[in-house]
Amino acid sequence: MTDLLHTALHAVSKSGTETPAVPYSRPVTPSGGSYAVQIGFVGLGAMGGVMAKNLANYRAAHVLNSSPILVWNRTATKAESLVSELGESKIRVAQTLDQVVTECDVIFTALANDETVKSVYQDFVKTLKHTPPARNKIFVETSTIYPTLAGELDVLVSSVPHCHLIASPVFGTPYVAAAAQLVIVMSGDYRSKKEVAYMLVPAVGKKVIDLGGNIEKANTFKLIGNSMILGTLEILAESYTLAEKSGIDASEVHSFVKDIFPAPGIIRYSERMSTDNFDATTGFSINGGIKDASHIRQLTAVHNSPMPSIDIAHQHLITARAIHTAHAEAGKEAVEVLDWSGIIAGTRVAAGLDPFAESKNVHKVQED
Rank of each mutant, 00 (worst) to 15 (best):
V183A: 06
C104N: 09
A301L: 14
K53V: 07
K53R: 15
T96I: 13
S309C: 15
I290S: 02
V106L: 14
V362I: 14
A46I: 12
S187K: 03
A56C: 11
P23Y: 10
A203S: 12
T19L: 12
A322D: 14
T142A: 12
P202W: 06
E216V: 14
E367S: 06
D259S: 14
L86T: 03
D276K: 00
V183K: 01
P30A: 06
S251M: 08
G188L: 03
G172Q: 10
V155N: 14
E152D: 10
I39M: 07
A180S: 14
A243M: 06
F171Y: 14
V365L: 13
H162Y: 13
E103F: 11
H295Y: 12
A350G: 02
E152M: 02
A250G: 10
A179T: 05
D249G: 13
K126R: 15
S66H: 01
M228P: 00
D259A: 15
T2D: 14
L153Q: 02
T173Y: 08
P262M: 03
G40M: 08
E244F: 00
V157F: 01
H314M: 09
A134D: 15
A237S: 13
F356Y: 09
W72V: 08
I138H: 01
D292P: 05
I184V: 09
A76M: 11
A326H: 10
R26Y: 13
G151P: 00
L223H: 09
V176C: 15
S305W: 12
L182V: 05
I267N: 05
V176W: 00
M199A: 08
L156I: 05
K258G: 07
Y190W: 05
